[in-house]
Amino acid sequence: MRKIIFFMMTFLSSLLFAQGTRIMYDYRFVPDLEKKDSTSTELMYLDIRKDGSKFYSRQKFVSDSTRDAYLQKQISMGSTNFSFNGGNPGKVGYSVTKNYPDFTTVLHTSIGDNRYSVKNENPMNWKILPEKKMISKFEVQKATVDFGGRTWTAWFTQEIPFQDGPYKFRGLPGLILEMEDSTGTHSFKFAGSKKFDEVEKVEKKDEIGSTKSGLVIKTFGMASGKEIDVSEEQFRKQWKEFKNDPVKNMRQMLSQGNMKLTMNVDGKQLTDPSEMLRAMEKSQKEDIKKNSNKIEPALYP
């Protein structure tokens, strides 16, 4: 009997991988620890394919696709004047990829104008508990883990045979449908799933005809360029430096004297480099303060 069950689970897993599956989560979090009553929400995707998964914000995906389509259209028309206003980039800028079968996990994120690829170096030491309940139509079981500076409670189901979950979480004997940290300021809740063919249709619709280009366009205030591979310790060092001086890169560029910029701040046009730097520094520090409750605080000392 056990052999039959194992065969069925293996067959189901192979079938789901062949099709591809998108798991959707409602992510609720408190960005600013000083304003715990202010909660943000984001619809997150976990796209699972045969060779791995990707976890990311739907809104950021749509925004990036819209931007790419706009830029490609301008380039094809021979224009060098870009005025894309950015649209709504969402509230979650990072993504996480996992490679199967070893579950190598990488965080893709940015600090200032630079994009980083940060390989996870910490194991997931789960404690599986006997408590069970129902989520949607699935029976789930409780598990806990200390990870990234937080204590998390997860609910996973063996009825969906993926050892994966939201963010970096993986390694349980089934898909994680819910997670919440002990402070109650970060939580993920299962919001549905789609087969691979349905995923393809949604992606094609959201991309609105965007195509790739070899041209790199630098946009101030937006991370761009090739990702920099760093260790977690190197990333922490970069974050500390950015917190101490968030306009360091811009200051260096303006000091070269061969660049003229205009900045609009509250309806006022700024052309003086010193005024611009002060305005940018103020904005960046306010943004850091408003986003003080990172999902993985161990990476952001």
Rank of each mutant, 00 (worst) to 15 (best):
W239Y: 15
T109C: 03
E203M: 11
Q256K: 08
M263C: 11
F169H: 04
T105L: 09
P273S: 10
S53V: 07
S95M: 13
T10D: 08
D32N: 14
F220L: 13
V96L: 05
A191F: 00
E200A: 11
P161H: 03
K240S: 11
E34H: 14
I228H: 08
S283C: 06
G148L: 07
D287Y: 08
T105P: 06
G225I: 11
K194A: 09
K282F: 06
P101I: 12
P123K: 04
L43I: 14
K36Q: 14
K132H: 04
L129I: 01
S224W: 08
S187L: 12
N88K: 14
G184V: 12
V62G: 01
G214I: 13
P89V: 09
L270C: 11
K54S: 13
N88V: 13
F188K: 04
D51E: 14
D164K: 06
P161I: 09
S14P: 00
F11T: 12
P166F: 04
A223W: 04
E296Q: 05
I160H: 05
W155H: 04
L270P: 07
K294W: 08
F196A: 05
K285D: 03
S255G: 03
N244K: 08
Q284S: 14
E203H: 09
F17E: 10
S63D: 13
V106F: 01
N264Q: 14
G209H: 01
D181N: 10
G184K: 11
K294S: 14
L16Y: 02
A154H: 05
L172A: 05
P301W: 05
V62S: 03
Q59F: 02
V199H: 00
K226T: 15
Y300K: 06
Q284K: 15
R28F: 04
S76V: 05
M250R: 01
S65N: 11
Q72A: 15
Y45H: 07
T66V: 08
P101G: 04
K226L: 12
V140I: 10
T219H: 13
E121H: 02
F17N: 04
